[in-house]
Amino acid sequence: MKKPKRLKPSSRIAIISPSSGLPYLFPDNYELGLNNLQEFIGFEVVEMPTARMSPDDLYRNPQLRANDINRCFEDDQIDGIITSIGGYESIRILPFLDLELIMEHPKFLMGLSDATTFLSYLNQLGMITFYEPTVMAGFAQVKSLPPEFLQHLKSMFFSNQFPYRYAPYPRWTNAYKDWSNLETLGECEAFTENEQGWTFLQGTSVEQGYLWGGCMEVLEFMKSTIYWPHETFWEDKVLFFETSEEKPSPMQVGYMLRNYGMQGIFSKIKGVMIGRAKDYTDEEKQKLNEITINVIKGEFGADRIPVVVDVDFGHTDPKLILPLGGKVELNPITNDIILLESPFTE
């Protein structure tokens, strides 16, 4: 597995918009995220040509979006790449990626939601990629989020202390305040105390495997295409799934999980992590948990793999950084999720 070089506070980070043109529509929130990357993390920001492009222009030009990614990997002065935000059709850029160039120059690459397409595909090809905060969803809200979020970011980016024990955040939120209101820019809606943390629904033994996953709905775009993993890929994987703001019902999530079962995947993997579902009621979360176990254990007999839910990643905040290809340990006995090895080269 090809790892990127570890980042430093002075690292030059390129900003791309591989899917949505929200920086064009909400420039103040976007610029707040850029400023926070520089002020709180210490990165030097480099905006790529499509970063502020209009939604219409981005939609019409998937090759331009891919070209930005290619240029980032070609430029030796760029240390890493972070997406501005998610979207809904970045799968259209995949045919235009210069895979040989990218794989010869592994770099830090992070996004969420629709970025699942290229993050999961490049990881299949052998490079560690990173899932979660973006400029507009995560970094723009640093001042409003619990201080543990910034501590986590710095630990992941700059520290070489591994194994790294993930920890639930003390509180979380479902949403941000209106990005068009400058008086509340960067603020979040009401927080919920995270008294329980995450929960292992099943599992009695410690398991280790390699992370792979992303947004469940986006992964559906990739099934039956050449960008979907080969059946041999699934051995020793820990799958992580999260749902978007479109809020698929618990039954719809069950449909998606059933497809993985029919591919024989649950008999090969080492565990499943499910992020906190955005905008679900307590009753809907309970139903989701019931359906998840009914599919994985009841329908496909995978009763031995750990399944942990309400993990702090996905479309709620604050978010944990998950490296696709990173080796993790799921411990249902101690309720721990541990990143065993550094996802960077030193």
Rank of each mutant, 00 (worst) to 15 (best):
V253P: 02
V253D: 02
Y255F: 09
M256H: 03
L257E: 03
R258H: 10
R258I: 05
R258T: 13
N259M: 07
Y260Q: 04
Y260L: 11
Y260K: 02
Q263D: 08
G264I: 12
I265D: 01
I265V: 15
F266W: 06
S267W: 01
I269S: 02
V272W: 04
V272I: 14
I274T: 08
G275N: 09
G275Q: 07
G275M: 05
G275Y: 07
G275I: 04
R276A: 09
R276C: 03
A277K: 03
A277E: 08
A277L: 07
K278A: 15
D279L: 11
Y280V: 03
E283M: 10
E283I: 15
E284S: 00
K285L: 09
K285F: 06
K285N: 13
Q286S: 12
Q286C: 14
K287Y: 11
E290A: 14
I291L: 08
T292F: 03
T292P: 01
I293K: 07
N294Y: 04
N294L: 11
N294R: 13
V295F: 00
K297A: 15
K297M: 12
G298F: 04
G298R: 01
E299M: 14
F300Q: 07
G301Y: 01
A302N: 08
A302P: 09
D303E: 09
R304V: 15
I305F: 00
P306R: 09
V307N: 07
V307R: 12
V307Q: 10
V308Q: 11
V308W: 07
V308K: 10
V308G: 08
V309L: 07
V309C: 04
V311P: 07
D312E: 11
F313G: 11
F313C: 06
H315T: 09
D317C: 13
P318G: 14
K319V: 13
L320T: 12
I321G: 14
I321E: 14
P323L: 02
P323Y: 09
P323D: 04
L324H: 15
G326F: 06
K327G: 03
V328H: 06
V328G: 09
E329V: 01
L330A: 10
T334N: 10
N335I: 05
N335L: 07
N335R: 09
I337H: 09
I337P: 12
L340E: 02
E341Y: 01
S342T: 00
P343I: 01
